[in-house]
Design a protein around this nucleic acid. Structure first.
Length: 270
DNA sequence: CTCAGTGTTCAGTG
DNA sequence: TCACTGAACACTGA
């Protein structure tokens, strides 16, 4: 599920469960998740290390280690976390599924599992956040991006707006669902090119994105609890436009399924 | 049985 | 170098 709001919820979860506990050992159940030169060496190097702080940029979660290094979590399409505080080993084992890919065993006997159904999720180790941001060229966080930054990110591209919103190099944190949500609430057609969007629309889009993401976080990223005016409710059932009632349009834009209303999100620039 | 899906990376093109 | 595109990755559920 992980777009920005989910990852922010994961960040808070780690902050509330996993700080300041020395690691006892790391259980590697699927080495593919670990994008490090040598998983065994990686695991050994983390023994006795603690998580000191958890931060986030877009969909990337950073664990600040007591060693000074940064453990990077990216959840892909299906990543999740589960912190087990049971003291009995049997009860801990009972909770393991085959999707528990990496497990961090703390000296306190608590266990943090990094879970992922599909193996698109990954864990990396970096010297610093700046090092990671610079090498991967990750754009500003969608919740923090200023209007001038946002405007430039949109107008400087000739790709469809939908593709721009999904491009983490330009703006970090928006995924397929929230991109459709933001475009619907802003009444912007997903196919309009970035360079062709009016200043008024960009302004509106910027506001709408901040608003949607904040509301999503406030509802713990639980889609079922989002306000009824959220497009997502109509989108999942592939139904009719919640505003005008017309059959929603479905197309591939920016390589992803895109659902929108051709009436409420006209192709002309306002 | 087939295919789409809350995402990224990498190779290749212009 | 840069902007962009399409394939690949892996597994479930409709």
């Amino acid at each position: 599920m992980p777009e920005l709001p989910e990852v922010e919820i994961y960040r808070r979860y780690l902050e509330n469960t996993s700080l300041n506990q020395p690691i006892h050992h790391i259980e590697i159940r699927d080495a593919k998740i670990l994008r490090v030169p040598n998983p065994e060496v990686f695991a050994k190097s983390l023994v006795r290390i603690q998580f000191k702080k958890i931060s986030r940029r877009g969909k990337y979660l950073f664990i600040h280690l007591s060693s000074g290094e940064i453990l990077l979590f990216h959840f892909g399409m299906t990543g999740n976390l589960r912190y087990d505080s049971n003291t009995k080993l049997q009860e801990l084992d009972a909770k393991i599924t085959r999707f528990d890919r990496i497990r961090f065993h703390f000296q306190s006997n608590k266990v943090l599992s990094f879970i992922s159904q599909r193996k698109f999720a990954r864990i990396e180790l970096w010297h610093s956040i700046d090092d990671f941001i610079n090498k991967r060229k990750i754009g500003p966080d969608a919740l923090n991006i200023t209007y001038p930054q946002f405007s430039r990110a949109i107008q400087s591209s000739k790709r469809p707006i939908k593709a721009i919103l999904l491009d983490q190099h330009r703006i970090a944190g928006i995924g397929n669902l929230y991109a459709d949500e933001a475009l619907f609430q802003s009444k912007i057609n997903p196919l309009i090119l970035g360079s062709q969007i009016s200043e008024t629309q960009i302004k509106k889009l910027h506001e709408v994105i901040q608003n949607i993401l904040q509301i999503a976080i406030d509802h713990n990223a639980q889609y079922g609890e989002f306000p009824s005016n959220f497009f997502l409710h109509a989108r999942v059932i592939n139904g009719k436009c919640p505003i005008c009632g017309k059959e929603l349009e479905k197309r591939i834009v920016g390589q992803r399924t895109t659902i929108f209303c051709t009436i409420c999100q006209p192709l002309i620039s306002l």
